[in-house]
Design a protein around this nucleic acid. Sequence first.
DNA 1: GGTGCTAACCTAACACCGTTAGGTCATTCT
DNA 2: AGAATGACCTAACGGTGTTAGGTTAGCACC
Lengths: 179, 179
Amino acid sequence: MASHALSRLTPRAREIVQTARQLLEREGPDALSMRRLAAQLGIRASSIYEHLRDKQALEAALISVGFEEQAELFSQAVHRSDAPIAALTAAYRDFARRQPNLYRLMTERPLRRDLLTSGVEEAAAMPLLDATGGDHERARAIWAFAHGMVILELNQRFPPDADLDTTWSKGIDAFHGTG
Amino acid sequence: MASHALSRLTPRAREIVQTARQLLEREGPDALSMRRLAAQLGIRASSIYEHLRDKQALEAALISVGFEEQAELFSQAVHRSDAPIAALTAAYRDFARRQPNLYRLMTERPLRRDLLTSGVEEAAAMPLLDATGGDHERARAIWAFAHGMVILELNQRFPPDADLDTTWSKGIDAFHGTG
DNA sequence: GGTGCTAACCTAACACCGTTAGGTCATTCT
DNA sequence: AGAATGACCTAACGGTGTTAGGTTAGCACC
């Protein structure tokens, strides 16, 4: 639970990031404005800049926390299961569905890697690489499939009657066939 | 070249949408503001509202045009090749790389289908369904993979040294193995 | 006990955003 | 001639991220 990504921040900055996370997830991406966030905290928008450089830094902190939690969830999923890829992709989908707005924030644009807590992106990616036995190629293909499935689902791009559980398992099966 | 999606618009609205497309692709998503668009046209932002209901309608027109062009490109790719799925996914990737900002606009949020030219979304999806011989399940899985690959590439999420051509062909191969 | 420092807040303003109300003017139709 | 239409305009509203500069409370130190 204790976040290494937040530990580099001052206590007040941590509070702000956590409030931002709740605001984002509860009220959607448009609610994540400096003014709305400040209102939630009972202060003015300009005061936030005492604690965080700018909105990009705030978003980077949120993304870092997201990666950190993914790393934890995904590595547990892999180690607890004897079908690691299925378990991992299930955890991946679960993460996205539980916090769709954070997931979108984490994936919808190029990453400002220089603003992230160092290592978190790699840590989130490691379990999948483990699950493929170190096969980068296969890990990338599975990641692409999983991200595609998840984001198209979140964005309601599949027909309402589509059986996505079946699509998932068929897709995962397909990636087992080829070395 | 003549667009059915634009044919329902007045001539002036068509010009505005086409200018918007150039602006979006040449200067990026932030440049697609009503004021910047108006400046490009030599008028004021408020004048745009004489021709298009609002920004959502403008975006919907752009998205409709995108779907229309996809439908054309994808059906050609399928019909001209004896490896239809490979040809189609290549065309899919090509479309996204040639106009990344339009592709993002088309995929990054839930669709306002009520604002689209009717039928364009389905028309863009048909060639893939053809290529899978009517197998919706497989079409969805391939679509998810293709979209995942494309958007992660556009957002520079793969390591710079990743050989994405290989990842693509391995992925496509995988989806041939399972019925 | 006053001095200086720091943290945390503030107001006011800037340039931008989408959007609306209401006005002007030339062209076209009757 | 008069009316209607289309295409533009200015001015404003409330929202955005951000900065400059000011206030206040608490604490360390001589």
